[in-house]
C-alpha cells in the first residue's frame, strides 16, 4: 500500500510479561477515518500510543507517514495531532495560552501561532472563553480545546483516543460534527472507541480488537452484514419465568440464526423480529418487555467474542 499513512505488520507491545498488543496488521489510507473498536483493555490505547510515537514497539514493523517511529519519532510527531484519552491541558495557562504554547512546541513562529489560535478557538467554539482558566470549563469544552490543540500544526493524521467518553449527548454530537468537518477537509483520522454509535457514525473502516488481537475488519455495515442478522429481538422476563436459550431456539427452530443469553435479557438474531416475537408468545412464553431493532456493531462484537462491549 504505497499511499498508506499507517502500516503495521505483526505490531506487538509487551509490558513486562503482559502482552497488550499481540501482533496486529494495519493499513490506514490517506483521507480515511479508521476505527479501533473494543472493550477496555483490548489493546486499543497501546496501539495508538505506538502509532503516536510515544511508546516504543516491542516487536513487529510499523511505518507512520512512511517513516519508522523508532528512528524518526520527532519528524512523525511534527506532522500528526494527538487527542489523548484523558484531557491533559495545561491548567496553569489560559485557554488561548494552551494553544500558543502547544503550537510553539511544533516549532511554529509566535505570529503563526497567534493567528492559528484565533482560528482554532473559533473551531472549538471557545472564542468567548479564550482568556479564561481551563479548570472551570465544562467537560465538552475541555474536550473541544484538546481537539483544537491537536490541530495546531495542521496535521495530516489525527489520532483520537476515546474522543467522546464521559461527555453528555449534546456535547458528543458537537464533537462528532467537528470531526466530520475535519474528515471533509481530508484529515486522516484514527479513532478508538467502545461506543458503537460513535464507530458507526464516524468510521469508514474499523477493526474490532479483543485481547490484543484483531478479530474482524471492515466497514461498519459490512461487519454487521457478515457477523449479524438484519434484525434483533430483545426479550426480558421475570427471573422465574425466563426460558433458557436452548428452549427458545427450539421454539423458533428455522426462524432464527442464534440466541444469545445475557444476564438481564435474551437476544434473538433473526431476519424478521416481529415474526419471531409472535412465535415466542404463541409458545406460551410471556416476556415482560420485547423490542425489535436493527443489528449494530454491539451485536458483531458479541458474536465475535461472546461478550458485551461495555460491562
Amino acid at each position: 500500500m504505497a499511499d498508506g499513512l499507517v502500516q503495521a505488520r505483526g505490531l506487538t507491545k509487551r509490558f513486562g510479561r503482559v502482552e497488550a498488543v499481540r501482533g496486529i496488521d494495519l493499513d490506514v489510507g490517506r483521507g480515511e477515518v479508521f476505527g479501533f473498536l473494543g472493550p477496555n483493555g483490548a489493546g486499543k490505547s497501546s496501539a495508538m500510543r505506538m502509532i503516536a510515537c510515544v511508546s516504543p514497539r516491542s516487536a513487529g514493523d510499523l511505518q507512520v507517514l512512511g517513516m519508522d517511529p523508532d528512528r524518526d519519532g520527532p519528524a512523525i510527531r511534527s506532522r500528526i495531532g494527538v487527542v489523548p484519552q484523558l484531557d491533559n491541558l495545561d491548567l496553569e495557562l489560559s485557554v488561548r495560552q494552551n494553544l500558543h504554547l502547544y503550537g510553539r512546541y511544533f516549532g511554529l513562529s509566535r505570529s503563526a501561532v497567534r493567528a492559528k489560535a484565533v482560528e482554532l478557538l473559533e473551531f472549538a467554539r471557545l472564542t468567548e472563553r479564550a482568556e479564561d482558566e481551563v479548570e472551570p470549563l465544562s467537560g465538552g469544552m475541555k474536550r473541544r480545546l484538546t481537539i483544537a490543540r491537536a490541530l495546531v500544526n495542521d496535521p495530516e493524521l489525527l489520532l483520537l483516543d476515546e474522543p467522546t467518553t464521559g461527555l453528555d449527548p449534546q456535547a458528543r454530537h458537537l464533537v462528532w460534527e467537528r470531526l466530520y468537518r475535519l474528515k471533509r477537509e481530508g484529515v486522516t483520522q484514527i479513532i478508538t472507541t467502545h461506543y458503537m454509535d460513535e464507530a458507526e457514525q464516524l468510521c469508514d473502516r474499523l477493526v474490532v480488537m479483543d485481547g490484543g488481537v484483531i478479530v474482524a475488519e471492515g466497514a461498519p455495515h459490512e461487519l454487521i452484514g457478515r457477523y449479524s442478522t438484519r434484525e434483533v429481538l430483545e426479550l426480558r422476563f421475570e427471573p422465574e419465568h425466563r426460558p433458557s436459550g436452548d428452549v427458545l431456539s427450539g421454539v423458533l427452530a428455522g426462524r432464527v440464526e442464534r440466541v444469545e443469553e445475557l444476564p438481564d435479557r435474551l437476544l434473538v438474531y433473526t431476519a424478521d423480529g416481529e415474526a419471531a416475537q409472535a412465535a415466542v408468545t404463541a409458545a406460551g412464553h410471556r416476556p415482560l418487555a420485547a423490542l425489535v431493532r436493527r443489528s449494530s456493531l454491539e451485536d458483531v462484537f458479541l458474536r465475535l467474542t461472546g461478550r458485551t462491549l461495555v460491562d
Binding site: P74, F106, G107
Partner: peptide, 21 residues
Amino acid sequence: MTGPVGTVPHPPRAWRLLPSG
C-alpha cells in the same frame, strides 16, 4: 487542506548518543 506546518527539529550532533527521538 494545507500541508503540515510543524517543522522537523534537527538535534545537535552530541545528543545522537541518547535514545533517538
